[in-house]
Design a protein around this nucleic acid. Sequence first.
DNA 1: GGAAGAAGTGAACCATCATTCAGACTTTCC
DNA 2: GGAAAGTCTGAATGATGGTTCACTTCTTCC
Lengths: 210, 210
Amino acid sequence: MAYRKTPAEIRRLQAAREHLVVCATQVVAEVGWSQASVTAVADAAGIAAGSVYQHFPSKAALAVEVFRRAAGHEVDVLGEVLRGPGSPVERLSRGVRVFARRALENRGLAYALLAAPAEPAVGAERLDFRRRYRALFAEVVDEGMAQGLLPAQNAGITAAALTGAIGEILVDPLGASDDHSTEALLTDLTATALRCAGAPPAEPGPTTPT
Amino acid sequence: MAYRKTPAEIRRLQAAREHLVVCATQVVAEVGWSQASVTAVADAAGIAAGSVYQHFPSKAALAVEVFRRAAGHEVDVLGEVLRGPGSPVERLSRGVRVFARRALENRGLAYALLAAPAEPAVGAERLDFRRRYRALFAEVVDEGMAQGLLPAQNAGITAAALTGAIGEILVDPLGASDDHSTEALLTDLTATALRCAGAPPAEPGPTTPT
DNA sequence: GGAAGAAGTGAACCATCATTCAGACTTTCC
DNA sequence: GGAAAGTCTGAATGATGGTTCACTTCTTCC
């Protein structure tokens, strides 16, 4: 007989899928892609390994979904800051700060998104993700140049440098751990980013000598 | 009975080992760590898979050797430029150019060294490798500050930004392929790097091509 | 209530490699 | 020449981990 799923059932399935994605994201943030086996993820979500395949055709598909969600959110947040109010230089400054702060506050996830070893499907997503980040930064740099606030430069390269710098610091965080040194790190990083874009040096902030 | 290997035999074994490492490096540069199976590497070297274990106790050990060789050479080359003649700013400029040019000219290897997915043992080596790169850059930046050529800054972060920027451009090379755009890319990248370190923009004449 | 369809389970299955090892082949030394 | 020691081979072994599937449990609908 026909069997049409009741709305409640549909919702339940959606919720189960959602729960799976959320749990998988946590697992990935904690142990990285390479350790996030189907079994580990299923366990974390409280379902059997086989049930994962009710929601996704393969492990890779689940991984891509996890990545897209998390990465998309980060891009959205950064985009809002970079396209928000203020001069291009102010927005750039705030954008770098937000990007870096979010990364440092959820380092596991940030590392997974930016750098952690992953299967090819995720690697492809990551390329796109980085490209979008760079496009956002480049847009602001271009605006800054148009307004005469920034010197002539290759905005794409500046944007790549900003993304790379933040990623690099994430991977080996120079021993930052407590709140104070995190703040100092953010300040120094922002200063470096502004110099990198050629913005006139702001008021001298606290600089941690190497 | 005792059996002492004849000098010729010792040389032969050394050469075999050497040949294996060289071939493995080529394979890694071409297909990446993840595709460089023991069989693939052994085939490339013209020996049986089992013979790899005459020279290395495990695949990881071979991978580490491959990495150390290639990475060590890169660090040496960069170190020579950065510690060579010229003002800190000139050296920084030349160093970035050399680093980036070498990477772009052997992109497969550079990608393997800097970013490609790899087993944990190689990942650990890579951390060290990046740290050494950063230390070299930071040294020059510190010198530049000491001589009043560069503004006060966190040299470690600047160094990280330089490393990250070059790596980032490598991973997604902005469509550069022919010689001219590669040169343009290097020029733009060098300019970005100098800005990043806070070097006065109009200062240098045409930088010495490597 | 009960038949039919769908979702959930988890042990079995299977593909992929790193690693081993018994036997073939080579070199040393008397 | 030949025995001992070493090197080389490549198929067998073993571990890992994604995927499947026969079966159980839950939902829908009459």
